[in-house]
Design a protein around this nucleic acid. Structure first.
Length: 893
DNA sequence: ATCTATGGCAAGCCGA
DNA sequence: TCGGCTTGCCAT
């Protein structure tokens, strides 16, 4: 127990810091701006308001330092008007705007109107004069390209490539990285299309360039909090920072601790390999943190944007701490925090990205918390979490605090540093500095990639309202109510067990369609009369026959390097581990971008939103798969099932498969390939539900409840046993033996359920809460019921404990101990609950007793889960188990 | 905060 | 109490 709460509240430090004590951090940050510099990586960019110039952060892998380069080309922020200079000159609101600089005449290609037009660039002294304030210039006139962040604007105009190598000579910035591509890659370039070749060469150049070693540190801080489960507000920063930890790529393992009255024990300077440094004053602790932030070129946090750096900044500026603004090496944006010297990457933001979560990491983590992510990606189950770290000794606090920064560092290290590599690859593809890329969604990446290409081609970037005006809305009717247009086609499965099945699919179906059908906002529904006969199947839309669409070429070229270069290479066995992992990462990065490249056009938040384009892509997809099915049938091949881009065929011999593949290439211009073959496939009448057994007994399960992650562990493990049995089935006759083994499995599970021979843990469902608890007004799903029970009994007062520290990387969710009655639960939380008799029918696992379990409900759930599979393999659950008899036995008992 | 649509399923809601 | 419809989650 702490001796005094006062110690943690804000009040003057024991002694007012003297200027001398400030020595190291007192100085204003003076970046190094060499006039000449060898090859360095362009890793970050910013805008200096005082100098009114963009600056680049360049990382030199030799010295492991960041050097700055300030723009000296005189580039200024601007937006574009279609009006003439003369008429704009009469616009007093513009010319009298305090930030107005000058007009510049230029020309742009206006793709929506298929004409090169004269435009006027309205230059301003600073980005905010263009946009971002109520009286910015873009509010005074109809402007184009006025909502592009200035740094990005600058990068596109200067043809800069984030993540690539530059040097400085005589103060000038020069691209100095790889200019050539591998000799063997030239074979995949098209001979007859220079523009397309240019794009492929660009991607190859970007993605074949090396990634340096980045010297980096992970930071985590602990802050005192009077209420255990509440994280202090980083804006007011009312409480003391009591600890900070750094884990460096250079093996630095440092913990900084604030000495507190009443904690006397364990103050050794070595705890389990950690360097522990003690501070009597919080001021000195912060100064030491800032020194480290000025030392490392890369700083990683988990939630540092919203907490750690924000807290440190505001805390330091408190009068009682007495730092001056210039002494704090942190800069805050509205939703991001950066460090003045290096690059700050908030891994929370990166892993929160749905595309990263689903495609790059295969949906391995469900909750975006440090523990959940570390748990699933780093393999081994990490240390237990506990939100409250009150009353820890110094040693314990040190280990506890260090643990999180160590996890963050490990996330950048594991598996050959794939996270670092992925961030690099995505930054290069999206033409965004790492910091910006890692904070945006996939639509932001694709937007940036396409904006850059507009600038390269001197295209005027259209306004969203213009595209909508010109191209209109969709015309097909979606299957699902509330959706904008019809999507992929799912073939009605032929129920039963089918032996020897080949599954064919179109490689990157939608990107391939965008490529081969020349789709883009410019070409869809173009204005040429003669193109109107070039119909998109199943729609009234048509597509241009005269002009190549930029999106088609961008997406197409990305798709081609993935399919033709990276896919084969990622299977190559002779590569060094480092190269192999890089190719794997690039593959994944391309997959992420390509997967979203069609969907973004159907999203009204996307800058180039064009619903007929998305609709056409899906329509062509339906056309492709139905044509292929027709052709298969003409060739006498049985078709059992198909979903969007795949078809399940009875294996007809290699010759016929080849014939079908050839046909697809010729008739559709699409690459159809054998994805896999199954010894057998079991289909029920349900779509998106099947079980397929590979020749080597591996089993694919798709869509079946037994595999879903929210179901209780006991069901999952029983299901796995069921699958093992089915995996060993080789022929129809084997099913007889399987039948007996399945029966045994079912009856023994029943018996266990009946005897309640399971732990609560094994019986818990786990479901993520999609939105805040209060917003469930229409219905109350079971997991929400359980969550509401959890928040009950929460003490209204701060309770008896006087002191707590709150783990800093915790966003609200992570702070919550799973078994704590005082818990608040919110969106994103995983709720674990069991089904019980009486009451609400559910209880959070932490509140339930094993004897309350509603056994019947579990039996029912078990039955329906198994039935899905048994259905498919033609076994009747009731007949097999005599389920009626069993349940009646149970209910009679 | 910000790719799309399709589909299965359990459970909630509500009228008869 | 039943059936039809909706909601929310999980998955592809």
């Amino acid at each position: 127990m702490m001796s005094s709460l006062d110690h943690y509240l804000t009040k003057p430090e024991p002694a007012t810091p003297k200027p001398k004590a400030l020595a190291k951090t007192q100085l204003e940050f003076k970046p190094e701006t060499p006039n000449d510099m060898a090859q360095s990586y362009f890793v970050g960019a910013g805008y200096d308001g005082e100098r009114r110039a963009v600056f680049l952060k360049l990382y030199d892998p030799e010295t492991e330092k960041i050097r700055f380069w300030y723009d000296n080309t005189g580039h200024t922020p601007y937006c574009i008007s279609k009006d003439s200079v003369e008429s704009l000159q009469r616009e007093k609101k513009i010319v009298n705007h305090p930030g107005f600089l000058r007009f510049e005449t230029s020309r742009r290609y206006d793709a929506l109107n298929a004409a090169e037009i004269p435009v006027t660039l309205i230059h301003a002294e600073d980005p905010l004069s263009i946009g971002g304030k109520e009286d910015s210039i873009r509010e005074k006139t109809r402007a184009w390209e006025a909502d592009i962040r200035y740094i990005e604007n600058y990068i596109y105009d200067r043809h800069l490539e984030p993540g690539m190598i530059y040097s400085i000579g005589n103060g000038q910035l020069n691209a100095s990285g790889q200019t050539s591509i591998p000799e063997s890659a030239k074979e995949i370039l098209p001979e007859d299309d220079a523009e397309y070749s240019r794009l492929m060469v660009r991607w190859l150049r970007l993605l074949e360039s090396p990634v340096p070693n980045y010297r980096r540190v992970a930071l985590d801080i602990e802050v005192f909090s009077p209420i255990e489960t509440r994280v202090p507000d980083p804006e007011t920063a009312d409480y003391k920072v009591v600890a900070a930890s750094f884990c460096g790529s250079d093996n630095a393992r440092r913990v900084l601790l604030l000495r507190r009255p009443g904690v006397a024990d364990g103050s050794s300077n070595q705890v389990q390999g950690l360097d522990v440094v003690y501070f009597d004053r919080e001021y000195d602790l912060l100064a030491a943190i800032f020194e480290t932030l000025m030392d490392y070129p890369f700083v990683f946090t988990f939630n540092g944007d919203d907490f750690d750096l924000r807290y440190l900044y505001h805390r330091a500026l408190k009068p009682e701490l007495g730092f001056l603004r210039d002494q704090v090496p942190i800069e805050l944006g509205r939703d991001a925090a950066s460090v003045k010297y290096g690059i700050h990457l908030d891994l929370y933001r990166f892993f929160f990205n749905r595309s990263v979560q689903v495609y790059a990491f295969g949906n391995k983590y469900r909750e975006v918390t440090l523990d959940a992510i570390a748990d699933s990606l780093l393999g081994e189950g990490k240390l237990e979490t506990s939100a409250s770290i009150s009353n820890l000794s110094y040693n314990e606090l040190a280990s506890y605090c260090f643990r999180d920064s160590e996890l963050v560092m490990e996330l950048t290290l594991f598996d050959g540093e794939i996270v670092m590599k992925l961030i690099n690859a995505l930054s290069r593809i999206s033409v965004l500095p790492m910091e910006d890329m890692s904070r945006q969604g996939v639509s932001g990446w694709i937007k940036s990639m396409m904006y850059k290409e507009h600038r390269e081609r001197k295209y005027l970037i259209p306004r969203a309202d213009e595209i909508k005006q010109a191209k209109g809305e969709t015309e097909t009717t979606a299957i699902i109510k509330g959706k904008k247009y019809k999507g992929g086609m799912v073939i009605e499965p032929v129920p039963g067990v089918h032996f020897s099945v080949a599954v064919l699919d179109f490689a990157s179906l939608y990107p391939s369609i965008i490529k081969t059908w020349n789709l883009g906002y410019e070409t869809i529904l173009c204005s040429h009369l003669d193109c109107k006969t070039n119909k998109i199947p199943d729609t009234k839309h048509w597509v241009c026959t005269h002009k190549k669409a930029m999106e088609s070429e961008l997406v197409g070229s990305l798709r081609d390097i993935r399919i033709k270069w990276y896919k084969p290479l990622s299977k190559e066995r002779t590569l060094s581990p480092d190269m192999a992992s890089w190719y794997q990462v690039v593959q994944n990065a391309l997959k992420v971008v390509l997967n979203a490249s069609y969907g973004v056009f159907g999203s009204d938040r996307f800058a180039l939103y064009c619903p007929p384009l998305a609709e056409s892509t899906a329509a062509i997809g339906r056309y492709a798969i139905s044509q292929t099915i027709d052709e298969a049938q003409k060739l006498g091949i049985e078709v059992f099932y198909g979903d969007t881009d795949s078809i399940f065929l009875g294996f007809p011999g290699q010759a016929k498969l080849d014939a079908l593949i050839q046909w697809s290439k010729k008739a559709l211009g699409m690459e159809l390939e054998v994805d896999k073959t199954y010894r057998y496939v079991a289909l029920s009448n349900r779509k998106k539900n099947y079980l397929g057994v590979h020749p080597d007994n591996r089993v694919d399960i798709k869509g079946l409840t037994g595999k879903k992650r929210h179901i209780p562990e006991f069901l999952k493990s029983t299901f796995v046993q069921l699958i093992e049995i089915l995996g060993e089935v080789k022929t129809q006759t084997d099913f007889e033996e399987a039948r007996m083994r399945i029966l045994n499995l079912v009856t023994s599970t029943y018996a266990k359920l009946r005897n309640m021979d399971f732990t609560l843990d094994e019986l818990a469902f786990s479901i993520v809460i999609g939105k805040s608890i209060a917003s469930y007004t229409k219905t109350t799903p079971q997991h929400v019921k359980a969550a509401r029970l959890l928040s009950r009994g929460k003490p209204t007062e701060q309770g008896s404990e006087l002191s707590h520290y709150v783990d800093s990387n915790v966003d609200k969710r992570e702070a919550l101990p799973k078994d704590d009655l005082e818990t608040e639960v919110g969106a994103g939380d995983l709720v674990r609950f069991v089904k019980v008799r009486g009451g609400k029918g559910v209880k959070p696992m932490s509140q339930a007793k094993i004897h309350e379990i509603d056994v019947e409900k579990y039996m029912e759930y078990f039955r329906s889960t198994f039935e899905q599979v048994l259905d498919a393999v033609g076994l009747d659950y009731e007949e097999l188990t005599g389920a009626k008899k069993l349940t009646s036995f149970f209910s009679g008992a």
